[in-house]
Write a protein that binds this DNA or RNA. Structure first.
Length: 295
DNA sequence: TCGCAGGTGGTCG
DNA sequence: CGACCACCTGCG
């Protein structure tokens, strides 16, 4: 992998297993929007950018273009955020071994990568996601950022905003949040923001160092965080790859492809975590993406 | 109009 | 501990 600066953007060569649609539209993130040219524009950790990928040959992968980015930004942040240091080919080899179903799913979503997102942002984002749908979730989050987040500069003619910090939400009232249209989730957001602001994110950081079950138990102390949201936070925000979030789509696809009863989440979780272990999260993403486009 | 959408908290047996 | 069910809001 080789990166070089060209004007206001970074070109990364020889990037393998990357497909912008797979990465930004596989349900893990909510602040990236597809442009007409197939690139994605978004904000992560207060940095706005436009990301596009041009597939090259099979051996060397392709070329990744990150606009509005310096070499320093790339090294300090985007390289890690986009998880470019990980060999997804090896991951796919391991989870598809003797598993024709997984092979099919991994082939379908072959360019998926797990973004290394901010813990706090994933906590709030996935609390908002409960019992809702993606367009609405994205609207809520964007509104939350424009109303309460710090301005993060103008990009492509639009002012961009960082995700609000815990203390920026903890001081609000339900009336303040009303324009965001969070519905009944507003009280969960306020309670969770107060908790995280109080300990400065220490409990989140602590959870990152625990085993899966203890970490889940810790995260679930937050209001509005049940088993599904907790696993999303663990996987997407705390980068605990042995998590296997089970939402309605996963339940459907696990039923269809592996024959589990749709309400047997215990069984599915036990199966996935024993079979895929530290790679459960990757397996989940391939299956989820496959389900979204094949059910 | 009404059910449903990336679930969860509260309540009850 | 497991099985219900109400819940904000927007959309078809």
């Amino acid at each position: 992998m080789r990166a070089e600066q060209q004007g206001n953007c970074i070109i990364v060569y020889d990037v393998k297993d990357f497909d912008a649609d797979h990465v930004f539209d596989c349900g893990q993130c909510f602040r990236w929007n597809r442009e007409e040219d197939g690139s994605y524009t978004g904000v992560a950790s207060g940095r706005s950018a436009n990301i596009s990928f041009v597939a090259g040959n099979f051996q060397d992968g392709g070329t990744l273009r990150i606009d509005n980015c310096t070499l320093e930004d790339f090294r300090d942040f985007w390289c890690g955020y986009l998880d470019l240091g990980r060999d997804y080919g090896e991951i796919k080899r391991r989870i598809t071994e003797n598993d024709s179903v997984m092979r099919k799913a991994a082939e379908f979503g072959s360019g998926i990568r797990l973004l290394r997102q901010d813990p706090w942002e994933t906590v709030i984002s996935f609390i908002i996601s409960q019992n809702s749908n993606i367009p609405r979730i994205k609207k809520c989050i964007e509104k939350l950022c424009t109303m309460f987040g710090d301005p993060a500069g103008e990009y492509r003619g639009e002012m961009r905003y960082a995700f609000p910090r815990p203390e920026q939400l903890a001081c609000l009232t339900r009336d303040d949040l009303a324009p965001v249209k969070l519905g009944y989730r507003d009280k969960y957001i306020l309670s969770t923001a107060a908790d995280v602001a109080r300990d400065g994110g220490a409990s989140l950081a602590a959870a990152a160092g625990m085993n899966h079950d203890d970490a889940q138990k810790e995260i679930r102390k937050l209001k509005g965080v049940g088993p599904k949201v907790a696993d999303c936070i663990l996987l997407f925000g705390l980068h605990k790859y042995d998590s296997f979030p089970l939402d309605v789509w996963m339940k459907k696809i696990m039923n269809k492809l592996y024959g589990f009863d749709e309400d047997d989440t215990r069984g599915m979780d036990a199966y996935a975590r024993s079979r895929y272990g530290e790679l459960s999260g990757f397996a989940q993403q391939y299956l989820y993406y496959y389900a979204r486009f094949n059910l």
